[in-house]
């Protein structure tokens, strides 16, 4: 549908443009500026061109962090999406129970990132934590600050606990929008539970699931607070994901130039992957429809 051409409309957008300019465009330009310069002490800057970018692309440390990051996001999606759907499917359809469920489900979403980190940090401690103590009493050795696998498992658990609700709520909304006629038809056709899911619920949830995957991917790709609170990226560099690495570089080492280049590349990578994700899903959808 084509809009009627009206230049005056731009006047109305100006306040927002100014706000956005101050809140994101100008800071971002500063970062771009930094990424091409080297700084000594405080205020002396030298033009270094693409030096930082070149260096970063050859940095093993960065590639390691990138690999960890991808693996992390992949595992998160693999767990949270099916689990969220499962939770949504088993939620009550209507009435008081449904409202209670919705409120309970939203609780984790309301907890700040660093609090989630702290909760799990305490929860997992072998001396005073409920989980850590229980596991060690069962004879299972579990120590997230020493063992890389345990640290990973804890971070993943944390994220799953924190965000599966979001996937579940989105899926639940998708499920509720399916007209009852479909379920009735399925009953009449004597379709099994799996068939109902495979041929009715899943295809009708498609739209919301795409959004859920995209949101969870972008968010998990930027994870920072939880592993930082838990182990500060350790043990060793085991849970040093991209953003932790970035902060280490920028604040810990005061390498403003490389850090600026890093964040720009980080930003572009997220943009790129999200874009690819989105187009692939959209075209798959279109092809399916036209087949």
């Amino acid at each position: 549908m084509e809009k009627t051409v009206n230049q005056r409309a731009w006047l109305l957008v100006i306040p927002v443009l100014i706000l956005v300019a101050f809140s994101s465009i100008i800071p971002m330009m500063t970062v771009v500026n930094y990424s091409f310069q080297d700084s000594f002490g405080g205020n002396e800057f030298f033009w270094v061109g693409l030096e930082w970018y070149r260096e970063l692309l050859h940095s093993e440390r960065l590639w390691d962090a990138f690999g960890r990051q991808l693996l992390f996001s992949f595992i998160i999606l693999l767990i949270e999406i099916p689990l969220g759907i499962l939770v949504a499917l088993s939620m009550p359809k209507k009435g008081f129970a449904a409202s209670i469920c919705l409120v309970l489900m939203s609780l984790p979403l309301l907890i700040p990132y660093n609090v989630v980190g702290t909760i799990w940090q305490v929860f997992g401690r072998a001396d005073i934590g409920l989980l850590g103590r229980a596991l060690s009493d069962l004879g299972i050795s579990y120590n997230y600050s020493q063992n890389a696998f345990d640290a990973w498992a804890t971070v993943i658990m944390m994220d799953v606990w924190h965000w599966t609700s979001l996937v579940a709520l989105l899926s639940y909304a998708g499920l509720r929008s399916i007209p009852s006629a479909y379920y009735q038809a399925a009953k009449i056709d004597q379709a099994g539970r799996w068939s109902v899911f495979r041929h009715i619920e899943l295809p009708k949830m498609r739209g919301v699931l795409m959004i859920a995957i995209l949101l969870r991917f972008m968010d998990s790709f930027m994870i920072y607070t939880e592993p930082f609170v838990l182990t500060g990226g350790g043990p060793g560099n085991a849970t040093t994901f991209l953003s932790i690495d970035l902060v280490k570089m920028a604040l810990g080492q005061f390498d403003l130039g490389p850090a600026a280049a890093f964040s720009l590349m980080y930003f572009l990578v997220i943009l790129l992957i999200s874009y690819v994700f989105y187009t692939v899903m959209i075209t798959a959808d279109k092809n399916e429809a036209n087949r």
Binding site: A181, K187, H199
Partner: peptide, 21 residues
Amino acid sequence: ASTADRNIAQVFQFPVVYDTM
């Protein structure tokens, strides 16, 4: 008896088809 047990067929106002098939 439930709908499934009545052994009936029904056609609705709006088309109900399985998109995946």
